[in-house]
Computed example of a mutant assay.
Amino acid sequence: MAVYFHEEDLPEGVLAPGPVAVDTETMGLVTPRDRLCLVQISDGGGDEHLVRFNVGSAYDAPNLKAVLADPARIKLYHFARFDLAAIAHYLGVQATPVFCTKIASKLTRTYTDRHGLKNLVNELLGAEISKQQQSSDWGAAEINEAQRDYAASDVRFLHRLKDILEVRLEREGRTAMAQACFDFLPARAALDLAGWAEHDIFSHM
């Protein structure tokens, strides 16, 4: 198990075939304003790859974009809505098809309102992750070891969580409902980018 740090693109051929876990770190929560600083990606084999984009980056990352845009690879996220918007806005690709562990959790773990990644990892996998670096400066000139470990942990567990949550979705008869939600997420991200992040266009009002 190792965490690899790359500048501006993912090296070619470092990921095994199949689903990849993906996460992003940005300068804030307003996607057009707060630049994309880091993309984390893992094939579930034990290694995590962190791709850092510097100030003024052209986001010309052909290897990373090829993986993210590959329709044969499922992309695993926790809160895909945000990551899809950041990737579409800065890298210009639709990182689909999608499996979102937060949505799967909300559809199956209806006995709780705690659907954060830390909660899922603790309950379903019996592991602990630290969120201490969540609000750190991802645009700094140096990404320190604590930040790197935090960023890697955001993709480290997603393959295992997907396996468990798929079983629960099937058990509760909600697999098709979950898939419909996953399929809608790119449109939800596009609505966010277009200015409807805080307004429910499906509501009566």
Results as ranks from 00 to 15, higher is better:
Glu198Tyr: 04
Asp9Ser: 09
Leu158Arg: 05
Gln133Leu: 05
Gln132Phe: 10
Pro17Leu: 11
Val20Gln: 05
Arg171Phe: 10
Val22Ile: 07
Ala2Pro: 15
Val98Ile: 06
Arg156Trp: 12
His199Pro: 06
Pro17Ser: 08
Gly92Phe: 02
Gly173Pro: 03
Phe157Glu: 01
Leu91Trp: 09
Val51Phe: 03
Thr112Ala: 06
Leu50Met: 08
Ile41Gln: 06
Tyr150Cys: 08
Leu91Gly: 05
Leu10Ser: 06
Val3Trp: 10
Asp60Ala: 11
Val167Cys: 02
Arg160Thr: 13
Glu25Cys: 14
Ala141Glu: 15
His6Ile: 10
Glu8His: 13
Val167His: 04
Leu64Lys: 00
Met177His: 15
Glu166Val: 15
Lys118Ile: 00
Leu76Trp: 00
Asp47Asn: 13
Ala176Ser: 13
Ala178Cys: 08
Arg188Lys: 13
Ala80Tyr: 01
Gln40Cys: 13
Phe82Gly: 04
Asp47Met: 11
Asp60Lys: 08
Arg52His: 11
Ala146Phe: 10
Gly116Cys: 06
Leu68Ser: 01
Phe202Trp: 08
Val22Leu: 03
Ala140Asn: 07
Val55Ala: 12
Phe99Ser: 04
Pro97Gly: 04
Ile143Trp: 05
Glu170Met: 11
Tyr59Asp: 07
Leu10Thr: 02
Pro186Trp: 00
Ala190Ile: 00
